[in-house]
Each structure stands twice: as structure tokens, then as C-alpha cells.
């Protein structure tokens, strides 16, 4: 059997027409700590205005799922920037956030159609690797856009996940100088963004000295699981002063649990992503805040990076996109559909 497998192996290796286009020279990417990076706001200053785009440029986007507002908004950003520069966009997503093979099929089918550049938002760190290798073998640039990170990818556009948790921790340190008990509702275990957001929050708030993270439990991005987890934590720690959730869906579940326990005055709740429900909840005073990572703007920046790469510019491996902590104080400044004004506000930040 062994002998057979070995000879089969050698035979297939010889018969291989396909080159293994693995980027052996690139170190596995950590999008938060990669030293070869720049901020989105420096693109124009460092590389000049966007060069003219060649006629017939066609960019393909593959994202997680359109059931999540974040990925719909990202697609809007792709199209708005592309149409302003006369570029065609095809934006496709898998049926659900768990559909790893479906997303791979979509990516491979797009590659076979011949795009100038591709924007991937993979379900997991690994599921789009074959598509990435295929694209690289044909010389099509691929930009990994938020938030799972393909380790061998050459270009990444997205926000600094760790900074997300840091911003919320800083709010607590500023607004509760006396300290207290806080809890974290995490996203899916093993997902890079969830781990980094949680680490950023926990490390920052524990360094302050007088805070205690009494619970940090995964709720798999689910509103219902987050509701149940928060209810249990509140029962155990009635003096809890705040929750930090890794996304807005879970934060809104936590809000319901906090209200049901009659602790809305005492317990602050923070989410992540800045979806429209979260903005409404911040306005209504239910949700204390959310860290908006501006998906439409992120989509625009990602498209700009792709077009700059096509123009031959040598950009750093990571281009960081903006984020901001939204609370009742600044919700009206950021709740704008005017992207130019939003860009200006964030540039001034």
C-alpha cells in the first residue's frame, strides 16, 4: 500500500501541469502587527492621486454573506468607488457565513472569467487558499479585505482588530475611574478578529489595575446566545458595570438581557461594526456605544488599493482602514451617508 501510494504520488507529481504557486517568500500575515503597513489616510500623500484606470478594467469581489449588513455595505463601497472610475464590479457572496466550500466555488468560478483584480473576504483563514493560489499563478492581484486573514496573501486592507477592543477599554477607564467588573461576549472561537478584539480590550482594561474581567465567553456571533450568556453573567455578578461584545448583533442581544435584569442604568454595553440597528440603539440610549469600522468607506479604500496595484504602485502589505468609537455624544457626526464629509471627519481624527 505504502509503495503504491508513493509511486502514485511521484506519478501525479510528474503529471502535474499545475504549478504550486505558493508564496513561500512571504511570512504568514498577522494583519494587526505586520510592520510593512500604512494608514488609509496617507494613500494620496504617499502615492499621489489615483492614476488613470485602463479601459475595460473589471474587479471581482467575493465576500462572506449578504445576510449581514456589514458585507452588503462593503459591496456598496466597492461599487461606488469603481463606478466613479469607470470600473466594472461583480460582487458575490456565499449563502451563509458557514458556507466555506460554496464561497470557494464562487471564487474559482470568478477567476475562470478573467478579472483584472480580486477582492476576497474569506469565511476562514484557509477556505480561499486554492483560489488565491490560482489567481497568483495567473498573475491577478488579490486583496484580502477584512477580517479573516489568508496567511500567504500579499495585500490586506482592513481595520486593526486589536485597536477595536482598546478603544472600548479606554472609554471604561475614562468614564469609570473607580474601576469595577466587566465582561466580554466573544465571537466564534478561533476567529482572528474575535481573538484580537477580545485581547485588545482585556489587556488594556486589566493594565488599568482596578478593573476585573469576570467573564469572557464565546457566543458565536449569535444574538440569542449572547442574550443567554449575558443573562447568566448578570445573575452571577449583579454589580457588573459593563459588557463588550465582539459584534453588534451580540451587543443588541446583551442590551435585551441587561434591560430584562433592570440594570440599564448601571451596565454599559458596547458593540462592534456600527450597523444601522446599532446606531438606532445608540440614539435610543439602549446601547452605550459601538466601534464603527465604516464598511462602505472600507470598501472604497479596498477598491482604491486594487486599482493602485493594477497601476503598478508598490503599496505596503497592509493598508489599515478607519474606525471610531460611536457614543450618544458623536452619533450624529458619524451617522452620515455623505462619504466625503465622513472621510474629512476621519482624516481630522
Amino acid at each position: 500500500m505504502q509503495h503504491f501510494l508513493k509511486s502514485a504520488l511521484i506519478a501525479s507529481a510528474l503529471a502535474l501541469g499545475v504549478g504550486m504557486a505558493q508564496a513561500q517568500d512571504l511570512a504568514p500575515l498577522n494583519s494587526d502587527s505586520e510592520p510593512d503597513r500604512m494608514d488609509w489616510s496617507e494613500l494620496d500623500a504617499k502615492f499621489g492621486a489615483l492614476p488613470d484606470v485602463a479601459d475595460g478594467t473589471k474587479v471581482g469581489g467575493v465576500s462572506k454573506t449578504l445576510t449581514n449588513e456589514y458585507w452588503r455595505s462593503l459591496g456598496e463601497g466597492y461599487s461606488s468607488f469603481a463606478s466613479a472610475h469607470g470600473v466594472d464590479v461583480v460582487y458575490q457572496a456565499a449563502q451563509s457565513e458557514g458556507d466555506q466550500l460554496g464561497q470557494l466555488s464562487i471564487a474559482e468560478t470568478l477567476i475562470s472569467q478573467g478579472f483584472s483584480a480580486l477582492l476576497f473576504s474569506p469565511q476562514t483563514d484557509a477556505n480561499l487558499i486554492p483560489a488565491l493560489e490560482k489567481a497568483m499563478a495567473t498573475g491577478v492581484p488579490v486583496v484580502n479585505v477584512n477580517d479573516a486573514v489568508i496567511p500567504s496573501v500579499a495585500h490586506y486592507v482592513g481595520n486593526v482588530q486589536k485597536d477595536n477592543g482598546v478603544r472600548v477599554a479606554k472609554w471604561f477607564i475614562e468614564n469609570h475611574p473607580e474601576g469595577g467588573k466587566v465582561a466580554v461576549i466573544e465571537g466564534q472561537a478561533g476567529v482572528f478578529a474575535a481573538g484580537q478584539r477580545t485581547a485588545g480590550f482585556t489587556e488594556t482594561i486589566e493594565a488599568a489595575g482596578n478593573f476585573e474581567v469576570v467573564a469572557s465567553v464565546p457566543a458565536d456571533w449569535s444574538r440569542e446566545l449572547a442574550f443567554n450568556a449575558a443573562a447568566t453573567i448578570l445573575q452571577q455578578h449583579p454589580d457588573l458595570i459593563g459588557f463588550y461584545a465582539n459584534n453588534d448583533g451580540m451587543a443588541l442581544g446583551v442590551v435585551e438581557a441587561v434591560k430584562a435584569a433592570g440594570k440599564a442604568e448601571q451596565t454599559a454595553v458596547f458593540g462592534t461594526d456600527g450597523i444601522s440597528d446599532a446606531y438606532a440603539a445608540v440614539r435610543a440610549g439602549d446601547l452605550t456605544g459601538t466601534v464603527d469600522s465604516f464598511p462602505v468607506l472600507t470598501g472604497e479604500v479596498a477598491m482604491e488599493v486594487a486599482l493602485r496595484l493594477l497601476a503598478g504602485q508598490d503599496l505596503p502589505r497592509v493598508v489599515a482602514t478607519p474606525q471610531a468609537l460611536i457614543t450618544s455624544e458623536n452619533v450624529d457626526t458619524y451617522a452620515t451617508t455623505d462619504l466625503k464629509a465622513l472621510r474629512a471627519t476621519l482624516m481630522a481624527q
Binding site: 502514485a8 501525479s12 502535474l16 504550486m20 505558493q22 483563514d125 486554492p130 496567511p151
Partner: peptide, 29 residues
């Protein structure tokens, strides 16, 4: 999930990968 702690295992040997990524006379293995 318990065995891996939720994180993917990378570093699959390329001799194994070449089986799944290969093609014999144009037909994927």
C-alpha cells in the same frame, strides 16, 4: 474543536498537497 482549540492547523506537507492539487492529463486528481 476541543482537539485543535478552535484554530486551524497549517503546514500540511507539500508532497501531500501536490496530490490534491494535481491533474492527470488535464483532469484534476
Amino acid at each position: 474543536l476541543i482537539y485543535t482549540g478552535g484554530t486551524p492547523i497549517f503546514g500540511i506537507p507539500s508532497e501531500f498537497r501536490s496530490i490534491a492539487n494535481g491533474a492527470v492529463m488535464g483532469v484534476p486528481t
